[in-house]
Design a protein around this nucleic acid. Structure first.
Length: 867
RNA sequence: GCCCGGGUGGUGGAAUGGUAGACACCAGGGACUUAAAAUCCCUUGAUCGAAAGGUCGUGCGGGUUCGAGUCCCGCCCCGGGCACCA
């Protein structure tokens, strides 16, 4: 069963045991509900052409250690892997080469699978999923239908991020500093018809439920910031031109209403034209043009320079009737709040800057309670003052603390129908469509109003409360979105001639007329190309398929659920398995997904929870981010820098066990840390030392190993049991670096011992096994262990072995270390003190001194304060 | 600008308020060897000293404490996130 090599020949040992595990299906997980479950999940990879990056095995090794450890602890462990295989790089490759993205994707998956298997991870390969497999995305489409039915999916023509280079739109979350997250290409605003998911309907719960999950604080805070809840009020300002109605603004500072000196509306605000007076028309038009021409990069870069133009119109302050000039300025965004604000320059930095630039009045209405450092020396604060305080110059409200004034002013206006308390979020609805080929097709057909009505009669249960429609600007026709029946899923991608998007906002699917224009049976979802004659039957109507596809995030929103029951054809997962396995107990992946995948998946999960198909409200109860591994030069690994380390190379030169161990020994899992080729030698030597302690020169069992269980010295046993305890504790807390150093201490102790018992060696191999599974299988077998070491129960540590009879006490005089005492357990302070007085190293510091105080911590310290 | 995280030997990093530098790497010395590799042993924070030993030392400056890398206040630097969100 074992190999026959004499030396630690990892090139022979590692493939041997990998084959053994595969042939024995060692890591197949059955749904044995009699055992406690443990579900440990990695963020599944996008199978890129570049192959595995060294960052992948970092996180995967951590979860593999946990998986193997938990199995040894008696858990039924679910540890799956799959492929997040839709995505832009595969499609761009297809555009370049003309080959189907699926074939390139499958090649990449084959390579990834090979690399991952070579790392010896204990995945259950029978549960592998692939988001591009129609058997998988059938259920992605099914979940979309549920969202659609609940009215959480709609179509909107709206300004969206368009990336000319990628020829697609991108979500807010995919755009950084005016550039695409993928590729770093510039993006611009365009008005396009888009599918949008109503994630904002879940904003409050997405925020509130963060308190229930065990996540890194920084990630929770990032999501909080992204959701961006702010409490305030919507207030109505009458317009001087009364026929135009009211101007609605959102403010978080209704308490500063008396300090409003002007109004600002966004350049895209619907009232801009109506409010512009003839004298101001040219200036406003020129300004709007200038703003529209600004790329968002410029709009961000120029954030410091505020600009705006007076419309010529006025609004009336509802509390004091003041006439407030209405300006148009691009520092107010149409996408947030109402696209209009009341400007209070005395108490808002931006308004202050703007007022200063255009010589608008500043009225202070808040005074700090404590006139200390905020003061300008004359009792009033330096403006703008954004801190707390009490109201001044605010008529009846003067003197009120600001928090009270917020409530009272809002309530008073509400009672007059001039406002109400509201909550606003920065979170926008999720732009869910891409003009690409390589994604899940939307299972939706566009039909006429009358055909929709016809279908609605029998399909009411599949339809949203109000129809999703879109008006074709070119023809003036209005189209109705009719979902395919769930039974007709999956809707697969047709073959296309070219993968190149048309560039005008339509995907390559728009060119596949046979697929696009169909006769469809609305009851069954069956279809034939529209070029053929209409089939016989009442349920056949004309339909045009949706040409957009879903973004890459769709498939990763729910894959953790599919692993529970990956082959199920009648449900995305069996409810019994959903109940048993639930959601991952531990989820490990990069922090770069803090607001993308992790927010989207939470949203979908909550929708599924509301549908009653998953039993818990949150998908990822415990989350951990592995840190980035830098190149040897301390810089981010990149091809251009030439500092990339490939797992394949290390496996060939040092073996997988060494690589795994080294990745964990580098430093804390969450830390960013540089790779080092010299440091890896250290862990390699450690494994060789383990080998030599077990195996002699000729491949025989090391003669120092004794069957006699009492062969171990007391110190060796103490070290062993300390190791069992510490390694277990450290694994539970994902502190693998210190677990490994403890194992090094243990093997050093074994090496120094003249004899060691077989049971000690075996226990040591067992605690090493989750980290270095191949060498430990080999040695376990050679030392006569039965079965796979992976099946052996985790060794118990004996607390009695950990108790020392003597303790070291450090003697400090005035806080400085002066001596060490070795005293029996239970030694009193007085005894220790008198020992210190006679100890040669400390006595000299005590002679002739007056002892003022003695601090004694048994087993730690005796601090004597003198004079 | 705002919000996080982090600054410890030549290097990666350890340290429930209780011996700073565990465990490794590198470097130096020694053993084994014809020799080398491998392996094993020793030294290895700085500084003063012949030695015994002393002094200093966890980014900087203060503070709390018998005792601070750890807690508090004020800075500096690095990394990440957000950024006209009213």
């Amino acid at each position: 069963m074992a190999t026959h090599c004499k030396d630690y020949d990892f090139l022979q040992i590692e493939p041997h045991w990998q084959t053994f595990w595969e042939n024995n299906r060692s890591f197949r997980t059955d749904n044995d509900t009699s055992k406690p479950k443990y579900y440990v999940l990695d963020m599944f990879p996008y199978p890129s052409g570049a192959g595995l990056h060294i960052g992948h095995p970092e996180g995967y090794t951590a979860t593999d250690i946990i998986a193997r450890y938990k199995r040894a602890k008696g858990f039924n462990v679910l540890h799956p892997i799959g492929w997040d295989a839709f995505g832009l790089p595969a499609e761009q490759h297809a555009v370049k080469t003309g080959t189907h993205p699926a074939s390139n994707t499958q090649n990449n998956i084959t390579n990834f699978r090979r690399q991952i298997k070579a790392l010896g991870f204990s995945y259950d390969w029978e549960r592998e999923v692939d988001t591009t497999d129609p058997k998988y995305f059938k259920w992605t489409q099914w979940i979309f239908l549920q969202l659609f039915k609940k009215g959480l999916a709609y179509v909107d023509e709206r300004p969206v991020w368009w990336c000319p280079e990628l020829r697609t739109v991108l979500a807010n979350e995919e755009v950084q500093d005016g550039k695409s997250e993928v590729g770093g290409f510039p993006v611009e605003r365009r008005n396009l018809r888009q599918w949008v998911l109503r994630i904002t309907a879940y904003a409050e719960r997405l925020l509130a439920d963060l308190k229930d999950v065990d996540w890194p604080d920084s990630t929770k805070r990032m999501q909080e910031a992204w959701i961006g809840r702010s409490e305030g009020a919507e207030l109505l300002f009458k317009l001087e031109q009364e026929h135009l109605g009211d101007l609605k603004v959102f403010t978080t500072r209704p308490d500063t209403l008396f300090g409003a000196t002007y109004m600002v509306i966004a350049p895209e605000h619907p009232l801009v034209n109506a409010l512009t007076t003839p004298e101001q028309r040219d200036a406003i038009d020129a300004y709007k043009k200038k703003v529209a021409g600004k790329s968002d990069l410029e709009r961000t870069d120029l954030a410091k320079d505020k600009s705006g133009v007076f419309t010529g119109s006025f609004a009336i302050n509802p509390v004091n009737g003041a006439r407030l000039p209405i300006w148009v300025a691009d520092y107010v965004l149409m996408g947030y709040g109402t696209g209009a604000i009341m400007a209070v320059p005395a108490h808002d930095e931006r308004d202050f800057e703007f007022a200063h630039q255009y010589h608008l009045p500043v009225i202070q209405v808040i005074e700090p309670d404590h006139n200390d450092n905020a003061s300008n020396g004359h009792g009033s604060p330096k403006l703008p003052y954004t801190g707390d305080g009490k109201l001044v110059h605010s008529e009846d409200y003067t003197g009120l603390p600001w928090a009270d004034a917020k409530k009272k002013i809002t309530a008073d206006l509400a009672s007059k129908g001039r406002g109400k308390a509201t909550v606003n979020y920065k979170l926008r609805d999720w732009l869910f469509s891409r003009q690409r080929y390589w994604g899940e097709p939307f299972p939706v057909l566009w039909v006429t109003e009358s055909d929709y009505a016809l279908a609605a009669a029998s399909r009411a249960a599949d339809l949203p409360p109000s129809p999703v429609t879109y008006r074709d600007a070119a023809t003036g026709d209005t189209w109705y979105a009719l979902p395919l029946p769930a039974a007709a899923l999956p809707l697969t991608l047709p073959e296309v001639e070219s993968y190149l998007p048309s560039g005008n906002g339509e995907s390559p699917l728009a060119n596949v007329t046979e697929w696009l224009e169909v006769w469809v049976n609305f009851a069954t979802g069956a279809s034939v190309p529209a070029s053929q004659s209409r089939p016989v039957g009442e349920s056949w109507i004309r339909g045009r398929r949706e040409t957009n596809t879903m973004p890459q995030w769709a498939g990763s929103c729910w894959y953790y659920l599919r692993f529970l029951d990956p082959k199920n054809e009648t449900a995305f997962a069996d409810p019994k398995l959903l109940a048993y396995w639930g959601v991952p107990d531990l989820y490990v992946g990069g922090a770069e997904h803090a607001v993308l995948h992790l927010l989207y998946a939470r949203f979908w999960h909550k929708v599924l929870f509301d549908l009653g198909v998953v039993p818990q409200a949150e998908p990822f109860t415990k989350l951990f981010h592995q840190g980035i591994i830098l190149g040897e030069d301390g810089e981010k690994m990149s091809k251009s820098r030439g500092n990339v380390v490939s797992p394949d190379t290390i496996i060939a030169s040092h073996g997988t066990d060494t690589l795994r161990l080294y990745l964990m020994f580098l430093g804390p899992l969450e830390a960013m840390k540089p790779w080092s080729m010299t440091q890896i030698e250290g862990v390699f030597r450690f494994l060789q030392k383990v080998w030599r302690e077990c195996i002699g020169r000729e491949g025989e069992i090391n003669p120092k190993i004794s069957d006699d269980a009492s062969a171990d010295s007391t110190e060796l046993l103490k070290t062993l049991h300390e190791t069992i305890k510490k390694v277990g504790d450290d694994i539970e807390n994902l502190r693998f670096n210190t677990a490994i150093s403890q194992m090094m201490i243990c093997v050093n102790a074994i090496q120094k011992a003249e004899r060691v018992s077989l049971s000690t060696i075996r226990a040591f191999l067992q605690v090493l096994a989750p980290l270095a599974p191949h060498i430990t299988e080999e040695l376990w077998t050679r030392l006569g262990g039965t079965g796979s070491i992976q099946q052996a129960a985790w060794p118990q540590f004996d607390p009695a072995k950990l108790v020392a009879t003597e303790l070291k006490v450090v003697v400090q005089i005035n806080g400085k270390k002066r001596a060490e005492l070795l005293v029996p357990v239970g030694t009193s302070q007085d005894t220790a003190f008198s020992l210190a007085q006679t100890h040669p190293e400390s006595a000299t510091y005590l002679a002739g001194k007056v002892v003022k105080r003695v601090v004694f911590v048994p087993g730690k310290i005796l601090n004597i304060v003198v004079e």
